[in-house]
Structures are given as C-alpha cells and as structure tokens.
Amino acid sequence: MRTALVTAVAGAVVAFLLGLLTFGVQATVHPHDVPLAVVAPPPVADRVQAADSAEVDIRVVSADEARNLLRDKEVYGVLEIAPGQATIRLNPAVNPSGTQVAQQVLTGVAQGAGLPVRTETQAVSAAERTAPLAASALLWVGGMVAGLLFVVLKGRDLRWLSATAAAVLVTGSTAGLLAWWGVTLNVPTFAFLLAVATAFALLQAGLFKHLGIRAMGVLGLLYLMAPAVAGQVPELLNPVYRAVLWSWTPFRFSAEGLRSLLYDGSVSTEWWVFGGIALLGVVLLLAGKKAQTDRADGIVDVGVDQADGLPRAERQHTA
C-alpha cells in the first residue's frame, strides 16, 4: 500500500515538473516590450509612437541608427517609411520567433498608415532556421550517450579521451547532417560547433564520473527543458521562465552563436561561455574519485573479509 502511494505521488510530481519546465514555457508565451525601430518623418513618427503598447517597444530613430541597431541585434526589425512606401528590414541572424513578431507588428503599422509594404531580408530556408537549435541538441545528446555508455560498459581509464573523441565525431556527424540539409558551414562555424561539442562532452563526462548513471537525472532534464526555452526570444517568455531558465541555459548560447556565425560571422560572449563549461568539465574530471559502478545484479559490496566470510565491521567488533 505504502509503495503504491509513494510511486503514484512520485509519478505525479515528475509529470508536473516536466510540464512546468517544458510545455509551460510555450504555453505562457506572450510578447512584451519587443524592441522595434521605425524611421519616419515627424508627422508619421508621432502616429507610429502612438501605436506603442505593452507588447512592443517602438523606437523612432534615424536610418543609420536603425540599421546599426538591427545589425547589432538590439531590435528585431526596422520599418522605414518614405513617401508612398514602407520597407521592413529584418536580420536573419536574429531568432526567427522574434523576427516573425516584428514582421507582423511592423506590417500592421505600415498598413495602418495606408502604405504598401515590402520586406528586405536575406532568404532563409527551413533548414537554416532549424539548424542552430537542432545542432545544439545533437551535440548535447552525442556527448551524453557517450558518457552514459562509458558508465554502462564499466570504463575505467581515459574517460577524457572518450569525451574528446565523441566531441570530434559528433561534430563531424552533425556537420554532415547540416550539409545534407543544405546549410553551408564556414570554418568559424565548424570551429564553434567543435567547441560546443567539446564543452558539452567534458561537462557530461565529469558529471558521470562523480554521479555515475545518476547523472542522467540532471543531463536528461536539461535536455528536455532547455530546447523549449532556447528556441524562444526573451521578450516572448514569461518573466519567471526568462529569469530562471533562459538566462543561463547553454542551449541558448550555442543556438545564438551558431545563428550569428551562419549570417554575420561574429560571436564573443559565446566563446567565453563554452570555454568556462569546458574548464568546469576538466576540473570535474581531475577532481576526486569516480563514482562506484553499480553492480549489474543489484548486489552492493559490503566489504566481506575473505578470511572469515564476515563483513569487516563485524569482524572488528567481535575482536
């Protein structure tokens, strides 16, 4: 009776937590303060600013300032209004969810002003939109499976070699998939993929060393919840999810870095993030002793003294 109740409650709690950390992210999506830029003459600019709301943050700026903001990914879209024409400019290096919201809002603003609208942006295929987050997830799964098998197969030495070899091979397989899907990778993008894969694999290997198979409880949960968060832009997330999950998840940094390198070739913070993750993995691999391997038959070693067949603690007590 007691076991039945405990297992039932445990199942309900796990389901609730998974729903909260995964589907809850998407179920609570709502735009707020989405940054947009508008270039318009004064009379029109006044009407545009009147369209500002809690969902969007419209900035009326000069043409040069607007393009700089878009290039630096500080806004999700730019609307340039000229006599008889409105042009929406988008940056493919920006998260597609944010770009979609920007295009919808700015199109509505232009149509409200009675102007025809055209959109200027680099053409992005479905594979290119999917690639940054998909690659991040594949790199994580590859390192996680390699670390798990090292534990299951009772590997003893050269755990670091298993992790680094897995990182190289998973990077190659992921790059091959992306190329097959039609995504062109340059040298900096491939180097970043390798850096992310290495950081993931080293961290996972370090956790498996200290926690054994129990590390899957942490790594599996991260895999389930992180992509749901990393695929969104912060201005669409519930503020709680933004602060508690989005702010630190490594999937966000890998997806944003890959997306930037695919289109404008500039990342900075991301290198430091994954350098730090790799360093943490190395520290875990070098520190302490590895977790005791779980016996396949479920028997726990209690330290039997072969001299008399008694556990060591009992033998000392009887002495």
Rank of each mutant, 00 (worst) to 15 (best):
D72L: 02
T171V: 04
A307D: 01
D46G: 15
A243Y: 09
A226W: 00
V282L: 11
P35Q: 12
A102S: 09
I81M: 01
L221M: 02
M225I: 02
A205L: 05
T318A: 03
S125C: 03
A51F: 15
V124F: 01
E256Q: 14
E80G: 04
L207K: 10
R2C: 00
T184G: 08
V196C: 08
D46H: 14
V56Y: 13
F251H: 06
P234L: 05
L285W: 03
V187E: 08
G98K: 08
A10W: 11
A135D: 02
A296W: 04
D308T: 03
Q26K: 11
P43I: 12
Q122F: 06
G114N: 11
M1I: 01
L286F: 06
L279H: 01
G206P: 07
L224P: 01
E270P: 14
L280D: 03
V196W: 06
Q111S: 13
W181E: 13
A287M: 10
G281D: 00
L279A: 11
P188Q: 13
E128P: 05
G142I: 13
A50I: 14
P35W: 09
D33N: 15
K290C: 00
V48A: 14
N186D: 10
K289L: 13
Q292M: 02
A307V: 04
R59Y: 09
V29F: 13
Q111T: 15
G309Q: 02
L202D: 04
G217M: 00
R312A: 11
A165N: 10
